[in-house]
Simulated assay, not measured.
Amino acid sequence: MGQSKLLASIVVGAAVGAALSMLDRTTREKTIASTKRISETVSYYAANREELQELIQEKVTAAQSFYESASENVNMLVEKADEFKEFPSTIQDMISDTKSAFSSSDKE
């Protein structure tokens, strides 16, 4: 029951806030212009569904391409990180070999 009062209060607060913001002429004009533009866009795509489908397909294809590219980049970074993990042991081996080489040349 507490949740229903909360939700109702949020809805009422949003409605009151929207109504108060409409008292400002600039806000009212921008809202009307935006609503007209959205209405025209919806009407256009309602009449031209094929174009809307093509637009959506283009966006989906672009998103898939972006995902694949990002996935390849992440895989490459993971591989590089794995290579860097091996560096300390490789460097340690090189230091040991160098130490051994200098130690054996000092004995001679």
Rank of each mutant, 00 (worst) to 15 (best):
1 M>A: 10
2 G>H: 06
2 G>M: 07
5 K>S: 12
5 K>D: 14
6 L>R: 07
8 A>H: 09
9 S>H: 11
10 I>P: 00
10 I>Y: 10
11 V>R: 13
14 A>I: 13
15 A>L: 14
17 G>R: 07
17 G>P: 00
19 A>K: 13
19 A>H: 08
20 L>D: 06
21 S>Q: 12
21 S>R: 13
24 D>K: 11
25 R>L: 04
25 R>N: 05
26 T>Y: 05
27 T>Q: 06
28 R>D: 04
29 E>T: 14
29 E>N: 13
30 K>L: 14
31 T>D: 00
32 I>C: 06
32 I>H: 09
33 A>C: 09
35 T>A: 14
35 T>W: 04
38 I>M: 14
38 I>Y: 12
39 S>R: 12
40 E>Y: 09
40 E>D: 15
44 Y>G: 02
44 Y>H: 12
46 A>F: 06
47 A>N: 15
51 E>G: 05
51 E>L: 12
52 L>E: 00
53 Q>G: 05
54 E>C: 04
54 E>L: 11
55 L>S: 12
56 I>H: 06
56 I>N: 05
57 Q>G: 08
57 Q>A: 14
57 Q>Y: 06
59 K>G: 05
59 K>R: 14
60 V>G: 03
61 T>R: 11
61 T>Y: 03
62 A>S: 10
62 A>R: 04
62 A>P: 00
62 A>T: 08
62 A>W: 01
63 A>S: 08
63 A>D: 01
63 A>P: 00
64 Q>T: 10
64 Q>V: 09
64 Q>C: 11
65 S>W: 01
65 S>F: 03
65 S>I: 01
66 F>W: 04
67 Y>D: 11
67 Y>I: 15
67 Y>C: 08
67 Y>H: 14
68 E>Q: 13
69 S>Y: 02
70 A>G: 07
71 S>K: 14
72 E>G: 01
73 N>E: 14
73 N>P: 00
74 V>R: 02
74 V>C: 01
74 V>N: 04
76 M>S: 14
78 V>C: 05
78 V>A: 08
78 V>L: 13
79 E>S: 15
81 A>H: 08
83 E>V: 02
83 E>C: 03
83 E>K: 15
85 K>A: 06
85 K>S: 05
86 E>F: 04
88 P>C: 03
89 S>Y: 03
90 T>V: 15
91 I>M: 09
91 I>S: 06
92 Q>H: 06
92 Q>E: 14
93 D>I: 05
94 M>E: 13
94 M>S: 12
94 M>P: 00
96 S>I: 14
97 D>S: 08
97 D>K: 12
99 K>L: 13
99 K>A: 09
99 K>R: 13
100 S>A: 12
100 S>C: 04
101 A>I: 11
102 F>T: 00
103 S>Q: 07
104 S>W: 11
104 S>K: 15
104 S>Y: 09
105 S>C: 04
105 S>N: 06
105 S>F: 07
106 D>P: 01
107 K>L: 05
108 E>R: 11
108 E>C: 02
